[in-house]
């Protein structure tokens, strides 16, 4: 089980910019490394990460072995209504993960 975290400001004014920070515990295996028996370790990276704001897709990222282990992303959304900001990600092995946080718009 890996840890995924999302961080938002406590509350924002309508129309303002919201910094969304994401951290996912994932080795982002490149597929170029070998284990201590010389066997190639299969590539397994977080392939895609989507961000939904009250159910609507607002941001997405396709990633590969060029993104460092334990990916960290910071991006900015426009505050519209209070509601749920949800992240969904999937890796090459098909493992899915999610993290969400509530945004309060005043």
């Amino acid at each position: 089980m890996s840890v995924a975290k999302i961080s938002l400001p406590k509350s924002v004014n309508r129309g303002e910019s919201v910094a969304v920070r994401v951290a996912i515990q994932h080795p982002m295996e490149t597929g170029y490394r070998v284990d201590n028996k010389g066997k190639l370790i299969l590539k397994n990276t977080v392939r895609e990460m989507n961000c939904l704001y009250n159910g609507a897709l607002v941001f997405s990222a396709e990633m590969g072995s060029g993104i460092a282990a334990n990916p960290y992303l910071l991006f900015y959304l426009v505050a519209k209504d209070s509601g749920l900001i949800q992240l969904n990600w999937v890796d090459d092995a098909g493992v899915k993960g999610t993290a969400s946080a509530l945004l309060t718009v005043v």
Binding site: E16, A56, V58, S60, S65, I67, F75, Y76
Partner: peptide
């Protein structure tokens, strides 16, 4: 990336729902 074995590090899709077209991350 110029010299990574896979040149595409990331492909980011923004929407007008993004306050600015800005991304911070960490790469190899």
């Amino acid at each position: 990336s110029e010299k990574n074995p896979r040149p595409l590090i990331a492909k980011i899709s923004f929407t007008p729902g993004c306050a600015r077209a800005s991304l911070t991350t960490r790469i190899r």
